[in-house]
Amino acid sequence: MSSDLEFALRLADAADAITSARFRSLDLKVSRKPDRTPVTDADTAVEDAIRALLKESFPDDAVAGEERGGTVGAGRTWVLDPIDGTKNFLRGVPAWATLIALVTDGKPVVGVVSAPALGKRWWAAAGYGAFTDDGRKLSVSDVSSLDDAYLSTTHLGSWVEYHSREAYLRLVDACWENRAFGDFWQHCLVAEGVIDIAAEAIVNPWDVAPLQVLVEEAGGRFTDLSGVATFEGGSALSTNGHLHDAALSKLSR
């Protein structure tokens, strides 16, 4: 295990201590950001705690996070989503996670996804493989036809606003089954080989940076909806690799 991955796992431990204590708490404070998305006191507390640990151990590294800002540039940048799935978190739904990635020269090289309410954690490092907390090495499925594929997205409404509802429904109609596991979880399920495709019309870099390295190290493909292998493209498509080009074709506008 790389030292950077070990440190990222320590950051996840610190985040879990905060989020687990605040989940379903009666005094949770919730406000709205300018884009009308919710933010809780747990979101900001987690990001502040991780930033403090990074400043102590890696003072020269840049940090980009959902709540406190920052950009991904040259060199090393830690990309943080303190709580991915805040709407679930504030409603008491256990499908949420802290996302931590180390990006080097624009490429995610370490990724940790920690979902304590689900009792799950996933991690990966470039060249080391992808794993889950039971020690199992992850591998994507070998499904090779859309007719047999299991598909997930986050929210159908986002396809109307940001891409094309009709394009997404073409993919739905071509697949065997579809659900909306949403957010981080669906990409982790692709890496586990449990489902085959996860597609999102709109994402931010911190939503998917650790998921790119996780899916790729599990043997899959991760791109934006134009087919570029990047977490900064504003959209996301994770697949087992076999289905990627076919999925992109269905999603073209």
Rank of each mutant, 00 (worst) to 15 (best):
D147A: 15
A198F: 11
A21K: 14
G129V: 04
A97Q: 11
G219N: 09
V140A: 02
T153C: 09
V79H: 00
P94L: 10
T223M: 10
A97V: 07
G193F: 04
D133E: 09
T71M: 08
V79K: 00
E56P: 06
V215A: 01
R253K: 12
L9T: 03
A201R: 01
Y128S: 12
A21R: 15
W159F: 15
E177N: 05
V109W: 00
L189M: 15
G111F: 00
L9A: 04
S249N: 10
V103S: 00
A12L: 04
C175T: 13
A14I: 04
V143L: 07
W159E: 02
H163K: 11
D142A: 14
H163Q: 11
A95Q: 12
H155E: 04
V143P: 04
V194H: 06
V172R: 14
R165N: 03
A97D: 04
S238Y: 07
I195T: 05
D13N: 14
V110K: 00
L151W: 04
A126E: 15
T104W: 04
V160T: 14
H155M: 10
D27R: 06
E217P: 14
A201T: 02
S252N: 12
L156Y: 12
N178Y: 13
D147H: 07
K33V: 14
Q186M: 15
D142H: 09
V112K: 00
D41R: 06
K55T: 13
D84W: 03
N240I: 11
I83A: 06
A124L: 01
R36S: 15
G157E: 10
T104R: 07
V109S: 02
W206H: 12
G135F: 05
A149S: 13
A74L: 11
R136I: 05
F7Q: 05
F181M: 12
D207A: 10
R24L: 10
A45R: 05
E232F: 06
V93P: 02
D105P: 12
H155Y: 14
A174G: 10
V140Y: 01
N240W: 03
